[in-house]
Design a protein around this nucleic acid. Structure first.
Lengths: 161, 161
DNA sequence: TTAAGTGCAAAAGCTTTGCGGGTAG
DNA sequence: CTACCCGCAAAGCTTTTGCACTTAA
């Protein structure tokens, strides 16, 4: 009854490029200013790859070299998320994480270390999205979150509660 | 292709009772001390109902009357989550939210106001959980998150980006 | 008895905001 | 030209921690 999943390899340069173009398109479409700073922030999220926090984006070389301030990073991440150029990832930790991968995919979330792993699964992708019109809720996106324990956490400390 | 969903009514007293007993059972099973403070914290989460934050739990009458300190609330919520007596809910906001409903269910998350709505859906429940053994990942739980815009946010501000 | 939990208060970490000046459209 | 964005620095909110004391098992 279980379907196969695949680990998702790091994004290729071509994919990153495509994400950046998509961002440009979204800006035009929604009339949102396409600024150097936001470009740098998106670029950093894509380079960092592993669901960085806002702080990690702030300290990335890309953002530092571009001289983007902390406040701007937070504001830019928020606009990117609203535009749909990045995704906010919920997990158990105390800092919001951002995901530059906007294609449909899913997450393994470790309940102990809060690590997030992207997975691809045709089975999960074909989840029938229910009709939420009764609630007046407009669904933009869905994602399946599998919570549990990652290999490292199981190995490091087998006695867990 | 869309399946039906149902809004989940507030937990009945009987269900809350059952959650509290389940907590007691988990404590015994895992050898975790069953303290007054943790009991009060779980009780508050169940009474508050709507995915409260740690701060909301701190200021609930139940916890205040029991004289439980802020630090203990945070520590108790963490242990309850590890035990599986509550669930941490990921969303876009800057404070972790806790859910006392541990039966299988799913969430609507508003991208603007971060409101979380519990939904029941047989279609989503029957999602085929993929085999993650290749990753050494042990799945304890899964949940589908539908992100989008809630009725109020669509009405209040139709021009959104 | 003893490992673990608790309260207090302080520190640390994360995010938002006001304001004067700058920039994309 | 104008609405929106940016940097700075400060404030605000959320979470964690060290230590002495208390408690469940």
């Amino acid at each position: 009854m279980s379907t196969a999943i695949k680990c998702m390899p790091a994004m290729s340069e071509a994919m990153k490029k495509q994400c950046e173009e998509e961002f440009r398109r979204l800006c035009r479409e929604k009339g949102v200013p396409y600024t150097t700073q936001r470009r740098a922030v998106l670029h950093a999220v894509l380079e960092l790859g592993n669901h960085p926090t806002a702080e990690e984006v702030c300290s990335s070389a890309i953002v530092r070299n571009a001289g983007v301030s902390r406040a701007t990073v937070y504001r830019a991440l928020e606009s990117l998320a609203r535009l749909g150029a990045v995704i906010k990832v919920g997990h158990g930790g105390s800092a919001i994480r951002y995901d530059g991968r906007i294609e449909l995919h899913h997450h393994l979330v470790c309940l102990r270390c809060n690590a997030i792993t992207d997975i691809a699964s045709a089975g999960l992708d074909s989840t029938p999205v229910p009709d939420t019109s009764e609630f007046g809720f407009f669904v933009k996106d869905f994602r399946v979150q599998l919570s549990g324990l990652c290999r490292r956490c199981r190995t490091d400390n087998p006695k867990l509660h």
